[in-house]
Structures are given as C-alpha cells and as structure tokens.
Simulated assay, not measured.
Amino acid sequence: MSASLSSARSRAALRASARISVELLLVLVMTAVALWLLGRMWSVVWPLIVGLLFTTLTWPVARFLRRHGWRPALAASAVTVLFLLLAAAVVALIVVPVASQSGELTDGVVDGLHKVRDWAAGPPLNIGEAEISGAVDDAVKRVRESAGNMVGTFVTGVSTVVDGVVTVVLAVFLMFFFLKDGPRFLPWLGRQLPGRLATDVPTVAARSWDTLGSFVRLQAAVGLLDAVFIGIGLWIVDVPLVLPLSVLTFVSAFVPIVGAMFAGFVAVLIALVSNGLTDALIVLAIILVVQQLEGNVFQPIIQGRGLGLHAAVVLLAVTLGGSLAGVVGSLLAVPVAAVVAVFWNYLREQLTEPPGEQDAGEPRTDGAVPS
C-alpha cells in the first residue's frame, strides 16, 4: 500500500512539474514574441516612450493651469509652447557647445586611460604591460563608443539626426495629446475591458504612471543639482570642458548608480590629463562630497520615498538594458524594472488579500495622469 501511495505521489509530482515547466516555457515564448514585436514596432514605440517621459516632466505645470480654470486644450497648448521654447534655449545655449566639444571630451578620456595605464605599469604596482593593454584598449574602444553615443543620444535622441528629429516631433505631438486628454484615458480604458480587467488594468496603469513620473522628476532634479554643484567645483579647480562634463553629469543621473560612477570617472580623467594628479584628487573629492549630499540630503528631500528597488536590482537592470539596447537600454532599464515591480506587487496583493478587504483594486476616476 505504501509503495503504491509513494508511486502515485511521485507521478502526481512529475505531472505537476511537467505542467509548470510547460507553462513557464509558454511564458518565455510569449515574452520573446512580445520583445520581437516591440523591436519591429520600435519606430512607433520609441516616440511614445519619449512622449510619456516629456509628459511626466510637464504635467505638473499643466495640472496647475487646469486647476486654475484653464481649459484642457489651452493648458496643453501653453505648456507645449513653453516646453518648445525651453528646448530651443537648451539647444542654443548648451547642446550645440557640448556637441562641438564632444570630440575633445572623448580624446581627453582616452588620454586619461593611457595615462592610468602608464601609471599602473610603473612602481609601486608594476603591473605587466600585457596584463593591462587588452583591458585598456577595450576600455578605450568602449569610451569612444559610449561617449559618442551619450552625446549623440542627448543631441538627437537616436542614432541619426533625421530619426532624432522625427522622434522628437512625434513625441511633442503625443505629449500635447497626453496633456490634453490624459485624464480621460483611464475611465475610457475601464469601460472597454471586461470583468476584473476593468479594475485591474486601470489600477496598474495609474500606479505605473505615478512610479514613472516620480522617477523622471526625481532624477531630473537630482541630476540638475549634481550638474550645478559639480560644475561649480570643476570651474573653481579650473578643469577644462566644464559645460560638457556638467551636461554629462545631468544625463548620467537618469542611469542610477552606474551613471554617477561613469560621469565622475570621466571628470577625474579629464582633470588628470589637463591639470595633473593633485587636481584630479580634488575633483574626486568634490564628486564624492556631492554624491554624499545627493544620497543623504537631496534625494530624501525631493523624493520622499524610493522606487522600492534594491541597489542590486538596479545594477542588474542597467547591465541587462545596456547589453540589449546600448545607451537607450541603460536609460530605460530602471523605469521598466520599476513598472515590472508595480505589476508584481499588485499581483501579489490580489493573490494574498481577501477580495472584500482590499482597496487597491478600486478603479481610479481621476484619469491617466494622476495628481
């Protein structure tokens, strides 16, 4: 009897394992298909993403105008025009000078890497030339590609100027419609979906929007503060290329942890090549002080609460995003991971809380752009 029970239990366990394996395989296949479709539709998806990012930055102004009696179309138009004026000013005053100095910035970083190689080959480290030549050459190649891509991404948004202009134009039009009609989206979406989906999908979408907006506004504010303080420090030490380094610091802030390390590394290398070891150490100290202020003062004041992602998850997400899609993947990795975390947390709530006791599943009525 016990042998038959054990055999039946084993067969049941094998059937359960097989069913779980098949379901997991189906999930992986569907994920691969979704990623393939995303790649095929990237020319449409990328402007949509950029438009959403623009909207997260401009929605607080549009919301303020709407609350003070402005009609949605008028508020969206005013914010869009103001955004275009600010963008034109940024291009004229910052992007063009930065683009003109991008080659000098890249050359300075490469010279710094060679100088570090020469220092490591001498006393007291005495590291063999063969041991570091390959690593330095690979780093030089990556710096040339990454620095060029970083500046190119900031200037054009994509790999070519034409695609960048098209992307920005589409993103601005989408931003206008998001600002104008966004609050009506979630109620409309809830009416189109059947059953539980009418509650679950709008709720997850609203939470994802809150998370995305919080991330973009936080990183923009913290990146601006970092760029200003580090730029002032570089100017005081008389390090060249202050403006490009400040812009690089701001852009790198949108890649948490890794971006700050990369921007600081570039600034120290430029100071080492142009001013010498003493000024490079001073620049390193300035960057460390600013990073400490960011982590212990700026972020707690601006952010209030984090995205709920562990630092290890952020590092893994940035690494995976960079390996899959380069600089664009690194920029989008953390927001995507945060949205996935929102979905997972909501799913866990639905699976653990009794239906009658949960209030997270009620549909929002204030629209796609939460207050």
Results as ranks from 00 to 15, higher is better:
149 N>A: 12
175 M>R: 01
164 G>K: 06
178 F>M: 05
164 G>D: 11
164 G>N: 08
163 D>H: 11
154 F>S: 13
150 M>I: 15
159 S>F: 15
157 G>P: 11
147 A>G: 14
165 V>C: 05
155 V>S: 13
169 V>D: 02
152 G>A: 05
158 V>G: 09
156 T>S: 14
169 V>H: 05
149 N>G: 14
178 F>L: 10
171 A>F: 02
148 G>C: 02
163 D>I: 03
171 A>C: 02
168 V>K: 02
148 G>Y: 02
155 V>W: 05
155 V>A: 15
149 N>K: 07
159 S>R: 15
164 G>P: 08
161 V>D: 11
146 S>D: 08
166 V>W: 15
167 T>S: 04
163 D>Q: 15
146 S>N: 07
168 V>E: 00
166 V>C: 11
163 D>M: 13
166 V>F: 12
178 F>A: 03
155 V>T: 15
171 A>Q: 00
159 S>E: 10
155 V>F: 09
176 F>P: 03
156 T>Y: 15
154 F>A: 14
148 G>S: 03
162 V>I: 05
179 L>D: 00
164 G>E: 07
170 L>P: 01
167 T>W: 02
157 G>V: 06
154 F>T: 06
150 M>N: 07
148 G>K: 03
171 A>H: 02
156 T>I: 00
147 A>Y: 01
158 V>W: 12
153 T>A: 14
178 F>R: 02
150 M>R: 08
173 F>N: 03
170 L>I: 08
164 G>M: 08
164 G>A: 10
169 V>P: 06
165 V>A: 14
146 S>H: 13
178 F>H: 04
170 L>H: 07
169 V>L: 12
154 F>M: 12
173 F>A: 09
152 G>N: 15
171 A>W: 01
156 T>D: 14
168 V>R: 01
160 T>K: 04
165 V>M: 09
151 V>G: 04
172 V>Y: 09
161 V>W: 13
155 V>Q: 11
146 S>K: 12
162 V>D: 09
150 M>W: 14
152 G>S: 07
150 M>F: 13
169 V>E: 03
149 N>R: 13
177 F>R: 08
179 L>M: 04
172 V>L: 10
158 V>M: 11
175 M>C: 03
158 V>P: 03
167 T>R: 06
155 V>I: 09
171 A>V: 00
179 L>N: 01
179 L>C: 04
161 V>S: 13
146 S>Q: 10
148 G>R: 05
165 V>L: 14
149 N>H: 10
161 V>G: 14
147 A>W: 01
153 T>D: 13
160 T>L: 06
175 M>L: 01
163 D>V: 02
169 V>N: 03
172 V>H: 07
177 F>I: 09
149 N>L: 11
172 V>K: 06
160 T>E: 11
160 T>S: 15
160 T>P: 05
163 D>P: 09
162 V>W: 11
152 G>H: 07
149 N>D: 12
152 G>Y: 03
152 G>R: 10
170 L>Q: 09
148 G>F: 01
152 G>F: 07
163 D>S: 14
177 F>T: 14
162 V>S: 12
159 S>W: 12
